[in-house]
Each structure stands twice: as C-alpha cells, then as structure tokens.
C-alpha cells in the first residue's frame, strides 16, 4: 500500500519531467541539444551530491541546514591549506574533505549526544561554519589553482563532464545503500519510529552520526568540484544551497517527517529543477521567473500528489 503511493508520486514526477522536456524543447531550439544538456549537468553537480545524502537525513526525520556553510568552509580550507600553508594541492583536498566530514560529525554529535533537535543544531552550526569561513579567509578570495585541478570541474571524460561521472557513481551508490542494505533499512526504521527502532536493536545514534558525517563529506566534495568549476575560492560559496537541496529532496517525494522517500525521487526532483531553470531562461524567461516556477512546481506537485494519495487511501 505504502509502496504503491511512493510509486505514484514518482510516476507523477516522471510525467512532469517529460512534459517539461517536451514543452521546453518546442519553446527553445537550443534546449534539447546534447551539448546544452551535458553542460547543465555541470551546474547540477554540487546540489546533487548534497541532496543525495540530504535524502538520508530527511528520511531519518532530521534536517541539515548547515550544508551550504560546510561547503563554504571546506572551500576556504582548501584554498588556505594550499596557498597560505603551502601544502601540495592533493593533500589540501584531503584536509578540506576531512574538515567537512568533521563538521558534519560535529552536527551529529550535538544531535545524538545532546539531544538537540536537528533543525536547531544545524541552524546554529550554519552560522558557526559560515562565520569560520569568513574569519579564516578575512573575506579575501583565493585564485591561481594549477591547470590539472580544473579537470574535475571543467574537464571531460569519455565525452561526458567529469563531475557527471561522480554524480552518477554517488546516485547509484546511495540508491543501492538506501534500498538494499541493512543501513538503508535502519534509516527508514529510525524515521518511521525511532523508539521502536531503538528497541529492535538498531544502533540509532551510530547510524545518525554516520549520516550527518556523510552529509558533511558530500558538502566538502561539492566544495572541491565547485572551486574547480569556477577556478576561485570565496567565503560566500554555497549560500542558500541547503534550501535548494531540501527543495529537490521534498519535490522527490521524501516526507519531511521522515520514514518515507527514495533516491530515485530525489534524482527526478534535481533534474526537474535544473531543466526548469535552464529551459525557461533559454525560452526567454528572466532568471528570476524561474524561481517563481520552481516554487509553484514544488507546491503544486505536492498538492496533486497529496490529492491522489488521499483518494487511493479513501
């Protein structure tokens, strides 16, 4: 019964994606070209990586508002470790990834050990991590990365943008974990009924710690790809990313109350947002108009989906 309703939401979403693709390719000739679509994939990468793990976070009934700030902090750590501390770039990348993961782990500790609701805990660290990024960088940008580093964000691999391979890998990996492994089932169990999960022997706190740390890791990986794509590091990178990621996850049918949601849904949610952004701008709608469209699509999709679900239950 529940599987059916999940399926239904994703079907609706899939139809909306197809409809958007058809309408937009009629409206704008440049839209449905391979080059354009692949290029759009580049812009999709950072928010995708974050949104995939955000799906896990929200399925446990939590939320992570600090991902945008972790992205900013990791980007600054990368730049400072490389340029100011003189570390070799690969090592600086490792340091940035570790800092991001630690930042996520710190969120997890506040949430599990001190029982602070995730919304509040990550609201506080949102300010803290962004503040650290500003303080460390003193609001100065860092440029001049070596040529090889740009392969990640601007290069291609078998004719497809490098970062798309990374996104594809993580989509399959997270989809597999959430659907087929004990960890994935534990994630659903925690979101559906945390007390019951605890009594049935699931290591609730450990699972949550791991998920928040993974969220931090995803944000820092996104930071590195972001820096490589735009060739510069700034402390305001990733501002507002959390809301974009949450929008994609929720649009994909994940319940904000936890216990329900899929990676496939998030994947469609991400694609729908990006083709709307790109297609509408190609069709001559100003970039501000696309925000309006995304907001409307978010509310309307959920409205329609709720109506269908209510009917099927009633």
């Amino acid at each position: 019964m529940r599987m059916k309703s999940i399926f239904r939401h994703e079907t609706i979403l899939f139809l909306v994606v197809i409809a958007a693709l058809v309408i937009l390719s009629i409206q704008a000739e440049q839209f449905a070209t391979i080059d354009n679509l692949l290029n759009q994939g580049r812009f999709l990468t950072e928010v995708s990586l974050v949104a995939l793990i955000m799906t896990f976070v929200i399925v446990t009934g939590g939320i992570d508002l600090s991902v945008g700030s972790i992205l900013g902090l990791s980007a600054i750590v990368l730049g400072v470790a490389w340029k100011k501390l003189g570390l070799p770039l690969p090592l600086a990348i490792l340091v940035a990834l570790s800092v991001g993961t630690l930042a996520g782990l710190f969120n997890g500790i506040i949430i599990t050990r001190f029982k602070v609701p995730p919304l509040i805990a990550t609201l506080a660290t949102l300010a803290l991590y962004r503040g650290l990024a500003e303080g460390i960088s003193q609001a100065r940008s860092i440029r001049g990365y070596p040529e090889w580093f740009f392969v990640l964000g601007q290069g291609e691999f078998f004719g497809i943008p490098t970062q798309l391979w990374i996104v594809a890998f993580f989509t399959l990996l997270t989809g597999f974990i959430l659907t087929y492994t004990t960890w994935g089932r534990a994630t659903y169990a925690i979101g559906a009924n945390e007390t019951a999960a605890r009594f049935s022997g699931i290591a609730v706190d450990k699972t949550k710690l791991f998920i928040y740390a993974a969220s931090g890791f995803a944000a820092s990986l996104a930071a590195i790809i972001f820096v490589s794509r735009v060739s510069t590091t700034r402390s305001d990178m990733g501002m507002g990313l959390e809301l974009d990621a949450i929008t994609a996850v929720v649009l994909g049918g994940t319940s904000i109350f936890g216990g329900k949601g899929t990676i496939v849904g998030t994947f469609f949610g991400l694609i729908l947002i990006q083709i709307l952004k790109n297609g509408l701008s190609l069709a001559g709608v100003k970039s501000d108009g696309t925000y309006i469209a995304i907001g409307l699509v978010l509310i309307l999709t959920l409205l329609i989906s709720n109506l269908f679900n209510r009917n099927s239950e009633g």
Partner: peptide
Amino acid sequence: IIVAYAGIPSIVVTLGMMSILRGGLIS
C-alpha cells in the same frame, strides 16, 4: 490554508513560497 486543508507541512509550503516571492521581487 494550504498547510491546514491540503495537509502539506508548513516548512515545505513556505519553502516554495520563498522561491516564488524571491523571484517575484527581483523580476
């Protein structure tokens, strides 16, 4: 009204509303 009668959580509805208002303001 959307929150109460359509049963969509307020964080989601206002997230959508934020996008609409922000876009509307700039345009």
